[in-house]
Amino acid sequence: MEIMRILLGILFTLVFGGALGMGLAVAFRKFSIEKDKVVGDLENALPGLNCGSCGYAGCSGYAEALAAGTDTDLTKCKPGGQSSLEAMGEILGVAVEASATKMVARPHCLGNNEKALKKYEYAGLQDCRAAMNQFKGFKQCEYGCLGLGSCIKVCPVDAISKTGDGLVKVDADLCISCGNCVDICPTGVMKMIPFDADYYIACNSKDKGKDTKGNCSVGCIGCKICEKKFPEGAFVVQDNLCVINYDEKDRDETRAEAAEKCPVNCIVKI
């Protein structure tokens, strides 16, 4: 008789589960709502990282807004880059510009614990924005990387890490160019540069040359040697700070020479 009870139990579970399954299948027929095909296609075209850099809650939110026509800007997805831009253009029947080189974030500072002088020893909340509230940071240079890692916390792909000597570094291969770190960085030292750039100016100091030199041994003093002696290198000095015009490509040789001539060595090869 025991075997009958076991069989009954198996039979009951099968029938009960089957009935529920059938019920759900019927209910699905009855209650299912047609998902907009365009929305689905757009979601597939987007990278699905849900990083939020487009300003919507996630990729699906952006897809819905695009499909509904409340948003017409296709370029808001930074991680997707060119491939997803083209795919979305195809779905929506919009011509897209074949532009947009991949950008990556990079902290423009070499002033680590040894090279940059400090105003005071900071022992507060381990967050760059909190440190910035106290006399514009604990470094004498108020433009440099504070290295407390506010950017690390907002990076959706963990591309940023501490170097261990008071700075942060970005793994360019992991970077999806969402720009979250640029937005959160209180000193503005985190900037986007093209992925294929060979050189960058590793300083963000807009102080006068003399002050910069007093604050940090690797700061750009705005001496304009690079700008004047190497016009081919597309260096521009503004506000006592050199910047590279990345639109001018393939200037590696000139830039290499300029890097050697830079008195503070802040033209750095990537």
């Binding site: 009954l8 139990g9 009951f12 579970t13 589960g17 019920g23 209650f31 299912s32 709502i33």
Partner: peptide, 29 residues
């Protein structure tokens, strides 16, 4: 009525899982 009270855990899991699915569909609609 079927005298299978000992199956309550299994049946409850089945019931709750399908119930939630059903509720989700109805609410969505």
């Amino acid at each position: 009525p079927l005298n299978v009270e000992y199956l309550q855990t299994v049946t409850f899991i089945l019931t709750i899982a399908s119930l939630v699915q059903l509720v989700e569909m109805v609410v969505q609609k």
